[in-house]
Nucleic acid binder design. Structure first.
Length: 608
DNA sequence: GCCGTTTTCGGCCCGACTGTTTTCAGTCG
């Protein structure tokens, strides 16, 4: 009897197949809306909070927007058999290596189809050979210059793939804005695109400039130091690629008309599509420039009748469509347009809502700076508390603390807190100090051992102000084992926060395999907060996971996980990640003042 | 292929730049 058990697929696997179908249909020259439908469905499948393979196998799939009858049937086939006949047949027609060609900048589906049908070129190697031999220029629409461009694109393909973390993107944006802001005629330069939406990673950067002298600004932009290549330059936009860096697009806008430009170039594409559909329903065509009336023929008016309606701010653009202002972090077409239309957008958490930070380290374990230096930085941020959470004993690589060092460390905290109290009483504390004063709280980052036990006994755990538990070891265990270990921590009354629950490192290490809904339900029941870790390399939980967790009743903690003084700034990436998860201040435990936070952890431990 | 308190059919967002063209198709965001 052969093994007929189909492989276990994830939502991401399903999405990959749908994306591939969408790409192949483009190459095939199918109606664009058909391939768009597959790509949309793929995105919806990928971010669905449900395990769709399990649901389809059970014959009870949830409603996924963008997945209609035809695609649902295909998902059912894929989930139950692990294969999809339609996909296989497409791959017989067009080899999957064509998709590598499609990824090359400047090479789209039409041209891929052309060179495949005419020259049977299906791989990057074949394409390079044909370009070098000058065989592409014989095709209609291609030239020797095209061959040169493609060879450059192939050579640069590997270097371009890496996406930036938010802090890397920010460093480049700030440098460019500083350089362009001084050009004469420039009124302001701001970041737009996925960086402004605070996506987890950034592919390229978008800048918007309001200027009286576009030509001068573009000239300066394309001659900035550190530019490897000028990709485009026009009177409305220009694009460059930085040396060892991403592509940067600069868009120009006339002064006083920034509203529609900001909306358009902040995106996302899907969000914009929704806005334009709403505008169209109301008889207006919306572009980055503004609104134009649609005529009787269904086309935007042109000529002297075509008066352009512009707005100075984004809020006015949304208001014109009877929508609330949508914060950039929400603009992903995940329900925000509907919510904005009915006045039900949530009040999102702000950095200013945070009264403290529950996760940080010192040089007692794997941190860089001393307890005092870390505390001083936290104090000058205006926080009421900083929880020091150095590692527990079994995470040896960090020089994790045994109980005796924990008690020693606690005395250091007590001495510093006595000093802070004295300074506050004498009026010599830093001016940022809040009315309730600043105190260090004692916590630990408690290791959940590979055998499922916690690293400290209950008596020691009960003596901490705050305990964050985390799993660093034994990551390759089964889903059931990993989930069980997390549940041990969640169920302990002494564990207040599950730190970086997915254990991922963006671009390097995937999420742990966990039964997420089980974990959320148990965390909601026990009142254990799930962390949104602000490190730009972690941003863990991911936004879609955090949104689901809060929907199921979980609390969250937004933490910096600072290992050096400069990393307290990571709190803002945690905040933007929480905002992307539609999270408001009420479910974030570190929006509580110090007394409220202490009361929360005491109550959890069952002590008065 | 999806979707519908305007539609179960007929829509589906919009414009700039580039390159190869002699008026436009392809690509991109």
């Amino acid at each position: 009897m052969p093994d007929v058990t189909p492989p276990t697929l994830t939502n991401a696997d399903l999405a990959r197949v749908l994306h591939e179908i969408g790409d192949l249909l483009e190459v095939k020259g199918e109606l664009v809306f058909k391939s768009v439908a597959y790509h949309r469905a793929a995105d919806a499948v990928e971010r669905s909070p449900h395990d769709l393979v399990v649901a389809y196998r059970a014959g009870d799939p949830p409603d996924v927007p963008g997945v209609g009858r035809a695609i649902a049937d295909k998902l059912a086939e894929l989930a139950t058999t692990g294969r999809l006949g339609y996909h296989d047949r497409l791959l017989e027609e067009f080899p999957p290596t064509l998709l590598d060609l499609l990824r090359l900048p400047g090479l789209g589906p039409k041209t891929v189809r052309l060179i495949y049908t005419e020259l049977r070129i299906a791989t990057l190697d074949d394409l390079r050979a044909a370009a070098e031999a000058g065989r592409l220029r014989n095709l209609r629409g291609l030239s020797a210059a095209t061959e040169r461009r493609l060879l450059e694109a192939i050579a640069g393909a590997a270097a371009r793939t890496r996406r930036l973390h938010l802090d890397e993107g920010e460093a480049i944006v700030e440098r460019l804005i500083a350089a362009l802001g001084t050009v004469s005629g420039v009124r302001r330069v701001v970041a737009a695109g996925s960086f402004r939406r605070r996506r987890e990673t950034i592919g390229d950067l978008d800048l918007l400039a309001e200027t009286d002298d576009p030509d001068r600004l573009v000239e300066r932009f394309v001659t900035l130091p550190g530019i490897a290549e000028v990709l485009a330059r026009g009177s409305h936009k220009a694009a460059v690629r930085l040396e060892r860096g991403p592509q940067v697009d600069l868009m120009l806008m006339p002064p006083g008309e920034a509203g529609a430009y900001l909306v358009h170039f902040t995106g996302s594409k899907e969000h914009n599509v929704r806005l334009r559909a709403i505008a169209r329903d109301r008889g207006w065509s919306l572009s980055e420039k503004g609104f134009v009336r649609i005529g009787a023929d269904g086309e935007p008016l042109v000529g002297p009748d075509a008066e352009l309606l512009t707005f100075g701010t984004e809020a006015e653009v949304y208001a014109f469509l009877d929508l609330e202002f949508v914060p950039p972090e929400l603009r992903e077409d995940r329900g925000e347009v509907e919510a904005a239309g009915t006045g039900r957008l949530p009040r999102l958490v702000d950095l200013a809502d945070l009264r403290g930070d529950l996760h940080s380290h010192s040089d007692w374990t794997d941190g860089v700076h001393s307890i005092e230096a870390m505390a001083e930085t936290a104090r000058r941020r205006g926080h009421a508390y900083q929880v020091l959470t150095d590692h527990s004993v079994s995470l040896a690589i960090t020089r994790g603390m045994a109980p005796d060092r924990v008690l020693l460390q606690r005395r250091v905290l007590a001495a510093l807190n006595a000093r802070y109290a004295a300074e506050e009483a004498a009026g010599t504390a830093p001016p940022e100090t809040p009315p309730e004063g600043f105190r260090l709280l004692h916590g630990c980052e408690l290791e959940i051992r590979a055998d499922g036990r916690l690293d400290f006994d209950d008596e020691l755990l009960a003596s901490f102000d705050v305990v964050v538990a985390a799993l660093h070891q034994g990551r390759r265990q089964s889903r059931a084992e990993l989930t069980a270990r997390c549940l041990v921590a969640i169920r302990s009354p002494h564990v207040d926060v599950l730190a970086h629950p997915a254990g991922r490192m963006i671009g390097e290490r995937d999420d742990l395999e966990l039964d997420w809904d089980v974990l959320y339900e148990e965390a909601a029941r026990s009142g254990t907060a799930l962390e949104i870790n602000g490190s730009p390399h972690r941003l863990d939980l991911a936004a879609e996971r955090a949104r689901r967790a809060v929907e199921l009743g979980c609390l969250v903690a937004i933490d910096s996980d600072a290992h050096r003084t400069s990393e307290f700034d990571h709190l803002r990436w945690g905040v933007s990640q929480a905002r992307r998860a539609w999270i408001g201040p009420q479910v974030v435990v570190n929006t509580r003042d110090r007394a409220g936070l202490i009361a929360w952890t005491r109550r959890r431990r069952g002590s008065p």
